[in-house]
Amino acid sequence: MEEDKNYINMIHGDLARASQVQSGMPENVGVMNIKTANRTILEASQKPTPRSLWDCFWYEGELSCLFADSNVGKSILAVQIADRIAQTDNVLYLDFELSEKQFQLRYTNEHGNLYSFPERLYRVSLDCDSLLDANFEEAIIGSIEQMALQTGGKSQMKEDKLRVLSGRTVLLFPDADGYSEWKQRAESMTYCKAIVSDLLEKHATPKQKADHIDIADWIIFQIQEGKLMSTANHLVEAEKILQQMIEKNPVLQKLIDELDLVLVDASHIASDDKSPP
């Protein structure tokens, strides 16, 4: 019944669009979209209801602006909001005002105790040296878009936001509940080649998917359960194996240098006697 209702609404939307065109009212003028209020409601009814991020004031996919007079606590409130959202979602807090020391002092009490934020809250600051040889506005906007893509921002998987990655191949690790959506969007991309990992789609439990875990959460879970050795220990062992292989065939080192290769794994390389093949 619900599916039939959706089809009916889609038909009504198409009829409203055709009626608008027939009446001479354009659908687009410059960067503006024009549609009737009724058509807006019909089309919006086909989309899922956004998830609440912070009480009833901010929902997923929305742009919210916080404004007030100077020195009344906007930055502190913004961090409090970020602190709350970071309990369940990754949050990038772009701080272009305070130095790291100022930030630390603000969140240290009179007894010298440091406040502990959720691990999902990341503070982003400017790399001033990198800005010297770049267009400031393009560098800022481009960096924000890349951060959103690389850290799981579903709303950023849009063609017009991927120009900065033009001609590149990007490996994406969506949250446990986002594979299907990201896969569908990636297949239609033209500016860059996007490869969407299905690691979490295949291995995350139903509860982990409901909790919207990301790749970092999953790796931590694997380490805690003893199913995955830590990266540091893994690479130490891998480096030993690689060194043994180079000693046996020095040409391998030249190949690594010429192609600028990076060691990431050594699983199943060594034989039973622990010597390289």
Results as ranks from 00 to 15, higher is better:
F173L: 11
D175L: 13
A176N: 01
A176F: 01
D177W: 09
G178C: 02
Y179R: 02
E181T: 10
E181P: 00
Q184P: 01
Q184L: 13
R185Y: 11
R185A: 12
A186E: 03
A186V: 03
E187P: 02
S188Q: 14
M189G: 04
T190H: 12
C192F: 00
K193P: 00
K193D: 02
K193N: 04
A194N: 00
A194V: 10
I195C: 00
I195M: 04
I195R: 09
V196I: 08
V196F: 00
D198I: 03
L199A: 13
L199M: 09
L200P: 01
L200H: 06
E201M: 05
E201N: 12
K202V: 04
K202P: 04
H203M: 05
A204D: 08
A204E: 07
A204P: 03
A204R: 01
T205A: 14
T205M: 13
T205F: 02
T205W: 02
P206A: 09
Q208C: 03
Q208K: 07
K209R: 14
K209A: 09
K209T: 02
K209V: 12
D211I: 02
H212E: 06
H212Q: 04
H212I: 00
H212G: 07
I213A: 01
I213Q: 08
D214N: 11
D214Q: 12
D217H: 05
D217P: 05
D217I: 02
W218Y: 13
I219K: 05
I219Q: 03
I220A: 15
Q222N: 09
I223H: 01
Q224C: 07
Q224E: 07
E225C: 06
E225Q: 11
E225D: 11
K227H: 06
K227D: 07
M229N: 11
M229Y: 07
M229T: 10
M229I: 08
T231K: 10
T231P: 08
T231H: 02
A232H: 10
A232P: 04
A232D: 15
N233G: 15
N233M: 10
H234K: 10
L235M: 14
V236C: 03
V236D: 14
V236I: 10
E237G: 14
A238E: 05
E239P: 05
E239W: 09
K240D: 14
L242A: 13
L242S: 10
Q244V: 09
M245R: 10
I246H: 00
I246L: 11
I246K: 02
E247S: 09
E247L: 14
K248N: 10
P250V: 06
P250D: 10
L252W: 00
K254A: 11
K254N: 14
